[in-house]
Amino acid sequence: MQVKIHDALAETAILIASRRQAANLKGLAEEEKLWLYLRTLSYFVNVTGQVYRFEDALEEMGDVGQRYVSARMSAHTNTCAQQAVELLLNSLSETPSPEQQHVLVLVALINFIADTGQVDEVEDFFNHLLDLAPVTVAHFISHEEAEAWLKGSAEPPSPARILIGDEYYQFWYEREDNTRGMCLDYAIEPALEALTARGIPSQRPSFATRAEAEAWLMSHPANPYSFVEIAGEHYFAVHHPRLKRHSLHHVASALNAWEERKKVVEREAALEATAPSDGASE
């Protein structure tokens, strides 16, 4: 089956939003939770860079294959995944024909998660989503190391965030023309701005060196953020459980960079608003 994966996932997002709203209006809290789970499931596949892996699995399944429930689901009874796939299959008979394909893509998505052994991870991701910092899939010491990995990988996970040192980067790979790249991503600055606006806690761990702070954070992980002091300076610790590490962001420097970024965005928006539209007379 030929399918453009990004289009397919966009269509499922519309379906999920509609069904979730309907469940909410009917007071069906448990069903609404399952539609929220399905939205989170799609988000998980995106932020962990598995979109093309899922596209390949979807192609292998085909139209008939999408109707089955993975045999590996039998080990995950009473999970959101098991309940969601039952909800989807039970809803097929009441789903208009044009939308049935979107339902089956969601069934295939659950099967993909089960077949790749990720049910428990997604379950935990769903239950603790609000306790997670923006997800990163890899860490590199330098730009050169990150670029070598990006260029050398036959098919890197995409789209996804990575860490270079303590900085977030968004990177992408497009299978259709093999283009790939990355750019600085201000992923945690909004949270840092909001938390510092309330005031940095007066009671915070203090360390003489970064190594001491990192050692302490390994046994006292941030959930997902925490302020620490290193050599008299304020730092924002961000927990990355998938990488088993913390990034440490110098508070003053990060906030200054964020203010500069917001100014750039404002200038670009102003220029776009005043630019003549296509076909306008000169």
Score class of each variant (00 low, 15 high):
residue 46 N to C: 00
residue 51 V to Q: 05
residue 121 E to V: 08
residue 51 V to S: 01
residue 46 N to K: 10
residue 40 T to D: 12
residue 58 L to I: 13
residue 46 N to E: 14
residue 137 V to E: 04
residue 79 T to Q: 11
residue 68 Y to H: 02
residue 35 W to S: 00
residue 120 D to K: 04
residue 42 S to Q: 08
residue 51 V to W: 01
residue 88 L to E: 04
residue 123 E to K: 14
residue 69 V to K: 11
residue 64 V to A: 10
residue 96 P to R: 03
residue 116 T to Q: 02
residue 118 Q to C: 06
residue 90 N to S: 13
residue 43 Y to R: 10
residue 110 I to A: 01
residue 97 S to P: 07
residue 95 T to W: 10
residue 94 E to S: 09
residue 54 F to I: 03
residue 137 V to S: 08
residue 85 V to H: 04
residue 128 H to I: 14
residue 95 T to E: 13
residue 50 Q to D: 13
residue 129 L to P: 05
residue 37 Y to P: 13
residue 102 H to C: 11
residue 35 W to G: 01
residue 68 Y to M: 10
residue 111 N to T: 10
residue 118 Q to S: 03
residue 59 E to F: 12
residue 80 C to S: 07
residue 117 G to T: 07
residue 80 C to M: 05
residue 122 V to S: 03
residue 111 N to S: 08
residue 108 A to V: 06
residue 127 N to E: 15
residue 37 Y to E: 03
residue 106 L to G: 09
residue 126 F to Q: 00
residue 36 L to G: 08
residue 92 L to F: 09
residue 127 N to T: 10
residue 88 L to W: 09
residue 84 A to D: 11
residue 73 M to V: 10
residue 44 F to H: 05
residue 71 A to Q: 03
residue 135 V to W: 02
residue 81 A to H: 08
residue 90 N to Y: 06
residue 134 P to E: 12
residue 97 S to C: 01
residue 137 V to C: 09
residue 70 S to L: 02
residue 60 E to V: 15
residue 107 V to C: 15
residue 61 M to D: 10
residue 99 E to C: 14
residue 35 W to T: 07
residue 129 L to D: 04
residue 66 Q to D: 07
residue 59 E to D: 09
residue 111 N to V: 12
residue 97 S to L: 10
residue 38 L to H: 03
residue 75 A to R: 12
residue 72 R to S: 13
residue 71 A to G: 12
residue 127 N to D: 13
residue 70 S to V: 06
residue 111 N to C: 13
residue 42 S to T: 07
residue 119 V to G: 00
residue 96 P to N: 03
residue 49 G to K: 02
residue 138 A to R: 10
residue 115 D to F: 13
residue 48 T to Y: 11
residue 105 V to T: 15
residue 59 E to L: 14
residue 55 E to C: 05
residue 58 L to M: 12
residue 38 L to P: 05
residue 103 V to G: 04
residue 43 Y to H: 15
residue 132 L to T: 02
residue 60 E to M: 11
residue 98 P to N: 06
residue 137 V to P: 15
